[in-house]
Design a protein around this nucleic acid. Structure first.
Lengths: 225, 225
DNA sequence: CATACCATACTTGTATACAAGTATACCATG
DNA sequence: CATGGTATACTTGTATACAAGTATGGTATG
């Protein structure tokens, strides 16, 4: 488990939450790992209270399982959870990008254009590590343009189920294809072309195909069933 | 605020959460009302800890706003939140009922059939107060049939934004229309007719039209903007 | 009277103490 | 050796104490 340093203005609870989410997503906390409130609070130099509050929040999203008086554990990969997260992301992304086609204005175009241009720049310079965060930001910005940013936030924790399995996949997506997708999405939004935008999202998400059998054969101990 | 009694097996935190959610939904806790951790824990005969944990969870869903060192308050009705909840419910319900058309089996049919039959029975006897809970159960069961029950649960707290505004509407929906909708949905699912099922959901949700202006003119102090 | 100050009584955030249940290792007993 | 009981060291759940910031009302001062 990686210990990040606490931001000065960050509350203890938010700090504990951030550390846990990052570690679960990156699999530095492996599925099944025991998490002790006492141990973690010692590592983070906090008391049990904020650590416990963070753990409870992640348990609500099924990322941690709490067994009272026995212990808390990083949830094993549950194919049903992964499927529900994937399903939810797909239908929501599609509906939101269609809404963005209606709601887009000059400010929204500027927001998305700046992002995609940066992606294209970093891609041309081979700085592909920068693209990951811009990718996330681009998707979030579409929700912002569609005035559905609360939905993005509410879903974000749940999507960790999907994203940590993606992180286990060997087959990484080619960055240039992703950036190209984003450019096409932006153009479709600018043109108000809902159907094309929706198709692009569908194809885009299809790139993150996860080969469950392969991952499972490598790391069977990570899986619930 | 109404104080319910605690179930014996219920944890203190779940109890506090249940009481708060019920009261916010029913508007027995009016938008804007101050909620003191100390006061509430005294009323519920609990310590601050479980009450605080419940408040934090509702704050995550924007149903309570916490201002550190100042106080916590039941969130005012925020039209943006209501719209996001309505939007999310619509797109999810539609996608899920389509999936239910594919996933339905004998057990699923029995589950839904029992529910709708009961609704029809209570309607014929004029016991319309029984229908409310069956209505909720019917929708949940569609998610269960489609194997998307986690999504239902994750969304349920957010839907309080939508539902408490519905509870403010004078224009109550005619029960028989709702029950009729459910019967038609069930038949569409049994027939595997996705498009009809989706249209029915759309029309069904359309019955819960909320006249924001009217509610706002009656209770302007409940609204954020 | 108006204003600045300050004590006070709140608020939530964090830390710690205690309660109650569980798993385990060890030891006594058959 | 096998088995059952038990002390022990954990775990999370709940209660309480303390820290730090905020709003308010009263009071002294100009």
């Amino acid at each position: 488990m990686k210990i990040y340093s606490k931001f000065s203005r960050e509350t203890a609870r938010d700090y504990a939450l951030r550390v846990l989410k990052e570690n679960i997503l990156s699999l530095d906390l492996k599925p099944g790992t025991a998490i002790s409130e006492n141990e973690l609070s010692a590592e983070l130099n906090l008391s049990r209270t904020p650590v416990r509050e963070a753990i409870i929040e992640l348990a609500k999203a099924y990322l941690i399982e709490i067994y009272p008086q026995r212990g808390s554990f990083v949830s094993l990969i549950d194919p049903k959870m992964v499927e529900e997260a994937r399903f939810l992301r797909k239908i929501t992304d599609i509906a939101v990008i269609k809404t963005a086609c209606d709601e887009i204005d000059e400010d929204g175009i500027a927001l998305l254009e700046d992002n995609v241009s940066l992606q294209e720049y970093y891609l041309s310079k081979g700085m592909t590590d920068k693209i990951f965060e811009l990718d996330n930001q681009f998707h979030k910005n579409i929700y912002v343009v569609a005035k559905k940013d609360i939905i993005y936030e509410i879903h974000s924790t749940l999507m960790i189920h999907f994203d940590r399995v993606r992180n286990l996949s060997v087959a990484t997506v080619k960055d240039f294809k992703v950036v190209g997708d984003h450019r096409k999405m932006l153009e479709a939004i600018k043109a108000g072309d809902k159907e094309t935008a929706a198709e692009l999202v569908d194809k885009h998400l299809g790139r993150y195909q996860i080969d469950e059998k392969e991952i499972r054969s490598k790391k069977p101990e990570y899986f619930k069933v």
